[in-house]
Simulated scan of single mutants.
Amino acid sequence: MTDFWQITWLIPPGLLLGALVASACVSALLSLLVIKGGPIDNPRERGAHSDPTPTSGGLAIMAASALTIGLIICFQGHDIPGSWRDGLILFGFASLMGICGAIDDVADLPASWRLAFQISLCLVFAWFYRVTTLDFGPGLIVQVPPLLGLLGSAAWLILTLNTINFMDGSNGLAIGAQTIALLVFAGLILLMAPLSLFGAYLGVVLLICICVAGAHIGFAPFNLPPGRPQKAKAFQGDAGSMFAGALIGGATLVVKAYGVGSVWFGGFLLAPLLVDVVLTLIVRTRKKENILKPHKEHLYQIWLQRRDGSHWRLALRVWGLCLLSSLIGVGARLVDRIYHTDIRFLLLVALIAAYSIGWLQLRTALLKRPLLNKAP
C-alpha cells in the first residue's frame, strides 16, 4: 500500500504545468485570428444562436496543440519518455478528423460522405490498437477475435466522434466536457503508468492530453464568454468536435493497449453525453426519422427550449455529471489496482442505467412544459 502512493512522475510536473499554460496562451491568441478571419456559421433552424458567429475555432485548438507539443519535444524531448510512434498515430488520427471537420464547416459535406470518411479512418486506427480482451469482472476476461476486435474498436471511435459532435450545440457544454475528459485522462496516466509494466510508453500520450486540454482552456472564454455566455464569440465547429472526439476515443484504445486503463474508461469519461446521444437516436429511430438529419431533440436542447435558456447553467450541470462519472471511473481503476477487484464494467453498467433512467424521467417532464418565449 505504501509503495502505491509513492509518486513517480512520468514527466516533470513543472514541464506539464508549463505545457498546459503555454498551450492555453497560444490557443487564446490563435482564437483571435479565427474570430477576425475564419469561416462564419450563420443562424440555422437547428442551431442555438441567432447571430452569425465565427466557427472552426477547433483549428485554433489543433494548431496551438501541435505548436506547443512540437516546441516541447524540440527543447525538452529528453524528458518525455514513451513511444513517439504512438503519439504520431494518435495526434495524426485526431488531426485528420479535425481537418475533415474543418472542411465540413466550410463546404457542408453530405452526411454520408462524412460517415464514410470516419469509418475508413477509424478502421485504420483500430488496426493498430484494436481491443483483444474485454474485462467483465474479477477473473472474467474474454478473448476477442481479431475481426470482432477491429470492428468493435472502430465502432467505439465512430460513436465517440459523433457523440461529441452531436452534443456541441450549446455554448461551453462540449468544450468543458472535452477538457474534463482530457485532464482526467492525464490524471489516470500520471497515477497508473508508473505502476504498469509498459506504462512508460505513454509519456507522449500524456503530453498530448495536457497540451490539448490547455488549448481547450484557452479557447473556452471565446465559446462561453464571461458575462455574456449566450453570445459566443466563436464556435469550435466540426473541426474541434471531431478532433477532440478522435483524440478521446483513440486515447482510450491506446491506454488500454498498454494496460494502464480499460476500454470501459472512455465510457466513464463521456457517460452523460453517450446516454443523451444513444437514447435520442433510439427515440428518433422508433419514430422512423432520419438519424443523419440535424435536429433539436437531444435532452440538452429540449432543456434550453423548455426549462432554462441559460447556456452557462446548462454547461455547469453537464460538466458536473461528466466530472462525477469520470472520477467514478478513476476510483474503479484504483480499486482494481489496490484490491485486485475489477468492478469497472459492473459500475459502468450501473452508472449508465442511472443516467438513462434520469434521462427518461427528465425528458418526459420537460416535454410537458411549454416552450420558453425565447427558446434557443
Rank of each mutant, 00 (worst) to 15 (best):
V106C: 06
A107Q: 13
A107H: 14
D108F: 00
P110S: 13
A111Y: 12
R114C: 05
L115D: 04
L115G: 10
A116K: 12
F117L: 15
S120H: 01
L121M: 13
V124P: 07
V124G: 09
V124A: 14
A126D: 03
W127A: 15
W127L: 13
F128Y: 12
F128Q: 08
F128H: 11
T133Y: 09
T133E: 12
G137A: 12
P138G: 13
P138T: 15
I141N: 06
V142F: 12
P145C: 13
P145M: 14
L147C: 06
L148Y: 06
L148M: 13
G149M: 06
G149S: 06
L151D: 02
L151Q: 01
S153Y: 10
S153F: 06
A154F: 03
A154P: 04
A155E: 01
L157C: 09
L159Y: 01
T160V: 11
N162P: 08
I164V: 12
N165M: 08
N165R: 02
N165W: 05
F166L: 14
F166T: 04
D168M: 01
D168L: 07
G169R: 11
G169F: 11
N171G: 05
L173K: 02
L173F: 04
A174K: 00
I175R: 04
G176K: 00
T179S: 13
L182N: 02
L183D: 05
V184A: 05
V184H: 01
G187I: 02
G187C: 01
G187R: 00
L188F: 00
I189F: 08
I189H: 06
L190A: 07
L191I: 15
L191V: 15
M192P: 00
S196P: 05
L197M: 10
L197P: 01
G199T: 07
A200C: 00
L202F: 01
L202P: 07
V205D: 07
V205C: 10
L206I: 00
I208K: 04
C211N: 05
C211K: 07
V212I: 11
A215D: 02
H216I: 03
I217Y: 03
G218Y: 11
A220S: 11
P221N: 08
N223M: 12
N223T: 11
L224R: 08
G227F: 11
P229D: 06
Q230D: 07
K231Q: 12
A232N: 05
K233T: 04
F235Y: 14
F235I: 09
Q236S: 14
G237S: 08
D238P: 00
D238C: 04
A239H: 03
